[in-house]
Amino acid sequence: MKDLGLWQQFFYYFQHNGMYILGKFNQHFLISIEGVLLAALVGIPIGALIAHYRRLSNPVIQLANLIQTIPSLAMLSILMLGLGLGDQTVITTIFLYSLLPIIQNTYTGLRNTSPAVLDASKGMGMTKWQQLWMVEIPLSVSVIMAGIRNALVVAIGVTAIGAFIGAGGLGDIIIRGTNATNGGAIILAGALPTALMAIVSDLVLEGVQKLVSPKGLSES
């Protein structure tokens, strides 16, 4: 092993532990996406709520901002005290981190709906819900998706650190590499797929964002 260069070691590791890495990759991805989806489920309604009751918007966004300022390792440790080791703690952390971009983008998107369009929709007899579903959400879906994209990229990074509290994922491989003597190749075997995952999911979500944004909106 010692005679091999770093990249050769890297490929060697990959060849011999491919399925293991793939398993960690899947686990990593699922943890990240689970946290983000939970945050979307909670964050989008909150965003919609504060867009309509604007007085709530400041305290809510401030709070989400506050959560964001806590370093991820600190957050993981604090939550670990309550939730114990394992992936549920990481998912909760991701959930909390993802709230800000999702709430804020939902809020911004909905607030930016053209007042003329809203006035016309109301004046034609749409209920508040119809305005939300038929007009505001479709018009702001791409901004909301941008928030989710943002959240997912951050989440993939947080999950990597989550390995410290036993959540699994590619972070496991990275930690193993840091513990081994000359473990550079192993670190890479964990780190490169993590980076790849972040880049690819960003690209994929960009595609999804284009797909779900309604056709009539001009490209701008």
Partner: peptide
Amino acid sequence: YVIQNIGLIPHM
């Protein structure tokens, strides 16, 4: 109801 800024819904 017709308004000055037209208010057609852009994605429809």
